[in-house]
């Protein structure tokens, strides 16, 4: 009896139709998206700051140094400290300026990763058009491609930043210039991926607005 009531209640929920696909989300999933994703993002950001994740900074620094030597032959080296409170440093000899750069939490784009993972993991699934399996597969695909893409973009941003700084362009200037470019490319990249593979994110946000407006008109 109760099951039937629940089913009736679910069937009477708002349904959105887009390109022959039907979308219907449960309240709980929408609440998870609104509250869960910012909380998870903050949690991941602080988790990345823990000393047990020092390997990520090491890995990023080593890869940057590798690409600097591979493409530009700069003979750069990575200095890794035993004390994990000090970030790894990339040292470039014969540099016109200081020549040593610490790879901090912002350099590894921790904000962006935590934001993306937090959002993607909490995207609600529609119970109408797609199966759970296909939704999970799309989620994993989106998560992998966006994380790898942003990681590579960030690596090359730092590689070019260090190279141009080595060539005599002031750090502040080239840093601003490259952050603008990389942020634009990164944001577009993530949005395009989400729109193609997980449009449920945008549709669920629209769904929330529709529910709120419906409630207000009913009142």
């Amino acid at each position: 009896m109760k099951k039937n009531q629940n089913k009736q209640l679910y069937d009477s929920r708002l349904t959105l139709q887009l390109n022959e696909n039907t979308y219907k989300f449960s309240n709980l999933q929408l609440i998870y998206l609104i509250i869960g994703s910012p909380l998870l993002s903050i949690f991941i950001y602080y988790f990345l700051r823990l000393s047990l994740n020092y390997w990520i900074y090491e890995l990023t620094s080593i890869q940057i140094s590798f690409f600097l030597n591979l493409f530009f032959n700069l003979n750069s080296e990575v200095i890794i400290y035993a004390d994990h409170n000090i970030f790894p440093i990339i040292y470039i000899p014969n540099h016109p300026f200081e020549g040593s750069y610490a790879i901090t939490i912002n350099c590894i784009a921790a904000h962006i990763f935590s934001f993306m993972i937090g959002i993607i993991l909490f995207i609600p699934s529609s119970k109408e058009s797609y199966s759970k399996k296909s939704f999970m597969w799309r989620k994993i695909k989106t998560l992998t491609v966006s994380v790898v893409g942003i990681y590579l973009l960030n690596i090359f941003r730092i590689v070019f930043l260090l190279f141009f700084n080595f060539k005599g362009i002031p750090f502040e200037f080239i840093h601003e210039s490259l952050f603008f470019l990389s942020a634009v490319i990164g944001a577009l990249f993530v949005v395009i991926i989400l729109k193609n593979w997980l449009p449920e994110l945008f549709i669920s946000i629209y769904y929330i607005f529709c529910l709120i407006s419906q409630k207000r008109t009913n009142e």
Partner: peptide, 28 residues
């Protein structure tokens, strides 16, 4: 750093555009 505010600002703006496009085409 990898400027977070610019990234988030762009992400939000583009999302709003997409949601608006859906608003025009979606059937309720």
């Amino acid at each position: 750093g990898f400027e977070p505010f610019l990234f988030l600002g762009l992400f939000i703006s583009l999302s709003i555009f997409i949601i608006y496009k859906y608003h025009l085409t979606i059937k309720k």
